[in-house]
Design a protein around this nucleic acid. Structure first.
Lengths: 136, 136
DNA sequence: CTTGAATCTATAGTCGCTATAGCTTGTAGC
DNA sequence: GCTACAAGCTATAGCGACTATAGATTCAAG
């Protein structure tokens, strides 16, 4: 009772994942094939739990699936320098910062838009007007 | 020479859009069907230009296509009160703010992650370690 | 044994686009 | 009128990361 004992639902619960997502990850090769019962049900052990935790942690931090694949490959090589991992994390941080900048600009524009209209009829609506502005 | 005179490429250029996107908008019903030449090419006039400008402006502000459909419907009713438009814009602003909060948290986590590793071997890599933390 | 929940595979959908293949039309230049 | 090339057309599939559903099987509890 310490080998592959988790059903897919059990694994999902343990890692805050979704059953469908786990199947999806298996399909795309991100999660290795698990053992199966005679009834063809998946059974997972500690290594799968760990790997899925890694994946979900990385997803939560905004790493793409492709990047996670790379990170997992790198993590499997204990004697390599971890400079590459640092690079990847830094790139990701940069992307997040760019997204933040864009969202901030968007917030500003929306705030301004909302403030520009004081109610009334649709034909005088400043929001509709602003949205109707010609482009370029 | 002032009726429907713009080709789809012309419309795309005038509104900073993409030909494919315009066709997509037509397919999902967001853009009305235009007139056609004998050779079956689309030809657009001022009303289409205006409508597409509205759509792109709204998309730029993060409104979903569904919401834009609603806004367009509302805009077509000049005597209605524009309270609904204000509500929609405010909701959208709220969504943007939530996304901002999430991204800020993400930036913080990533910043911390990047700072936690000072190079070395993969087996001592603090980033990999952090990603390997158990869930929940 | 029965029942109901969980599991399975296959397939399609979500959101908002974007790309491509193969064919036709339009336009400019000769 | 012919040629060449760009732009147009429809149909279909793909992108990224999931998510849902249908119909069938397995599992576990009573």
């Amino acid at each position: 009772m310490n080998r592959q004992e988790l059903s897919i639902g059990g694994l999902a619960e343990k890692t805050g994942s979704n059953v469908q997502t786990i199947r999806y990850y298996e399909q795309i090769g991100l999660m290795p094939l698990p053992e199966r019962t005679e009834g063809n049900q998946r059974r997972y052990g500690g290594e799968h739990v760990q790997r899925l935790a890694f994946i979900r942690n990385a997803r939560d931090l905004g790493f793409s699936i492709e990047t996670i694949t790379t990170l997992l490959d790198l993590a499997a090589k204990p004697d390599r320098p971890c400079a590459e991992v640092i690079d990847i994390a830094e790139e990701n941080l940069e992307v997040v910062r760019e997204r933040l900048a864009k969202l901030r600009a968007l917030e500003r524009a929306l705030k301004h838009l909302v403030a520009s209209c004081d109610g009334g009829r649709m034909k005088d609506c400043r929001i509709i007007e602003a949205l109707s502005d010609p482009r370029r």
